[in-house]
């Protein structure tokens, strides 16, 4: 340990060589809202919700390595507004039906929206026509609720070693696709206990038979805010890595 630090909203934050701003912040107990980042999975940086100002320039904190003496800002009114705009964009891009969704209370998109104080989206809804895949006996894939974070892509490839998911298409027509000749989940070797199934932060990949088993009021984000859950999750991952 060299005792290297950077400042986060003026407060010194220690870091070790190679750590990202996000990792160092979570270790110091500071939550920066994020969706496509998950401790233990490869760095991605596509949702942009974790964007911070580093020495005056914006960058995703989950993909930027911490450097000695850098001045990082996260709790500014401008960044708060931009983050809200991004989460609103994710809501209008898909078809998200929180009150009826079985992931409600366990959903990170919903929890982040509450955390950053999003009310109603200021943008027009796209109401896209997206496919639902119920061909797998134990898992359902509902693209209506997908936010294209690619966590399942990384989990299936890097953790499960199966490479079941990918992103197909470009721009607003980008979709989560299934690596099978038929394009159907039922024709893959995906199993219900795979990391790719568990990692979905929203209600896009759901286990059949698990819906509504936990009553409202006892779900993850009913009990604790996402900031506390994320800091705890990062701590567990650090301990796991230390062995």
């Amino acid at each position: 340990m060299s005792g290297r630090t950077f400042t986060l909203d003026g407060q010194p934050v220690p870091f070790t060589e190679g750590e990202t701003v996000m990792e160092a912040a979570l270790a110091a107990g500071v939550y920066i809202p994020h969706l496509c980042y998950r401790p233990g999975y490869g760095h991605h940086g596509s949702c942009k919700v974790c964007t911070v100002a580093i020495d005056g320039h914006n960058a995703a904190s989950c993909t930027t390595r911490a450097r000695e003496g850098m001045a990082v800002e996260t709790a500014t009114p401008e960044l708060a507004d931009m983050r809200r705009a991004l989460v609103e964009m994710l809501f209008v891009e898909g078809n998200h039906t929180c009150p009826a969704c079985e992931k409600s209370g366990e959903c990170e998109l919903q929890a982040v929206a509450y955390h950053i104080g999003m009310a109603a989206p200021r943008f027009d809804f796209f109401f896209p026509a997206r496919d639902l895949d119920a061909s797998h006996p134990d898992v359902i894939l509902d693209r209506n609720r997908c936010i294209l974070c690619e966590l399942c892509v990384r989990a299936s490839r890097d953790v499960d070693g199966k490479n079941v998911f990918a992103i197909g298409g470009r721009g607003i027509r980008a979709r989560l696709i299934v690596n099978a000749a038929s394009g159907r989940l039922g024709d893959t070797d995906l199993a219900k206990d795979d990391a790719a199934v568990r990692v979905c932060p929203v209600g896009a990949i759901l286990r059949k038979g698990d819906a509504y088993t936990k009553p409202v009021g006892q779900r993850t984000f009913d009990l604790r805010p996402i900031a506390a859950v994320a800091i705890e999750e990062a701590r567990r991952e650090r301990e796991r890595r230390r062995g």
Binding site: G45, S46, C47, K48, V49, L86, M89, L90, V92, E93, F123, D124, F126, I147, L148, I167, G169, R170, G171, I172, R173, A174
Partner: peptide
């Protein structure tokens, strides 16, 4: 837009 990041994927279409 390639569709990788949220702001460009959704923002350019909006």
């Amino acid at each position: 837009s390639c569709g990788f990041c949220t702001p460009c994927r959704v923002g350019t279409s909006l």
